[in-house]
């Protein structure tokens, strides 16, 4: 199962290989052995206990900008119907 959620590094030991990531205030132990050079505060993607990729914030912003543009051009109403 691939969890697509970016999580933030909040603890890192001296070796830089073991630490913890945080998501919504919940922390989980994570190995950074496959992602050398990460630092506290970096956003990463974790798979089965191992960080496998760093989140590129510039690219993330671009995707969101693209989505915003598609939404604006589609003429979808700003608020779609929720509960009455």
């Amino acid at each position: 199962m691939c969890l697509g959620i970016p999580v933030k590094i909040v603890e890192l030991d001296a070796s830089g290989e073991l630490g913890k990531v945080d998501y919504l205030g919940t922390k989980v132990q994570t190995s950074f052995a496959l992602l050398p050079g990460v630092g506290l505060g970096d956003w990463v993607i974790v798979h089965a206990g191992f960080a496998i990729s760093r989140l590129d914030e510039e690219e993330a912003r671009e995707t969101l900008a693209l989505l915003r543009e598609i939404v604006e051009n589609s003429g979808e109403p700003e608020e779609t119907a929720g509960l009455p």
Partner: peptide, 17 residues
């Protein structure tokens, strides 16, 4: 990051598709 999951995006993207 709501744009990645909400129905506004879904329906706009589906229209484009």
């Amino acid at each position: 990051m709501d744009l990645l999951t909400d129905k506004k995006s879904t329906f706009a993207l589906l229209r484009k598709i």
